[in-house]
Amino acid sequence: MRIVIIDDSGLRASVLEDGLRDAGYDDIHIVPPRGAFVARLERMAPDVVLMDLGSPSRDTLEEMLMVSRALAKPIAMFVDQSDDAMIGAAIDAGISAYVVDGLRKERVKPVLELAVRRFNAFARMQAERDDARAALTERKVIDRAKSILMNQRSMSEQDAYTLLRSTAMNQGKKIVDVAQALITASDLLGGGA
């Protein structure tokens, strides 16, 4: 079974490809949706095409699936409409799958299930990475505010942090917001850190 993944984000496509390979599928191709991707796809004659439900290239792809004479069999999204739960899971995970007509449901289902798991795992990974990034940025801001206090008020690091935290609590704000305000004020007054 030839599976083509149309994806712009290299990372998500690799996460999906790795999963499919681990499950024993070996005829997998990744095509970014740019330039003449439709012509490339026609030459590959895939059995299953997986892509992000929200991808802006889906209209272009569907038009090609409709008019292509190169594709021997029609390809449609979720050929088998009987499995509502499966389709629901795919839509919620943000996957659109175009499947060659005639491919048996039992053969497509494991591919879709795997894609759903991998898409969800990727979304979680991304959320965690975003959280980690935000935490790192916050820590840098707080560190800078602490060093301003340490330099200008000759405080220890622990006292500087305690001052920031108690100010935040008194004002009902987040520490990072108080720290940011301090940095801004210090910059305005030409204090520097």
Binding site: G54, P56, R58, D59, M77, I87, G88, I91, D92, S96
Partner: peptide, 16 residues
């Protein structure tokens, strides 16, 4: 907001 008509169509017919 959707970017493509295919996405908008699917969001509606599959009930999102």
């Amino acid at each position: 907001r959707s970017t493509s008509w295919a996405t908008l169509r699917d969001r509606m017919i599959y009930g999102q």
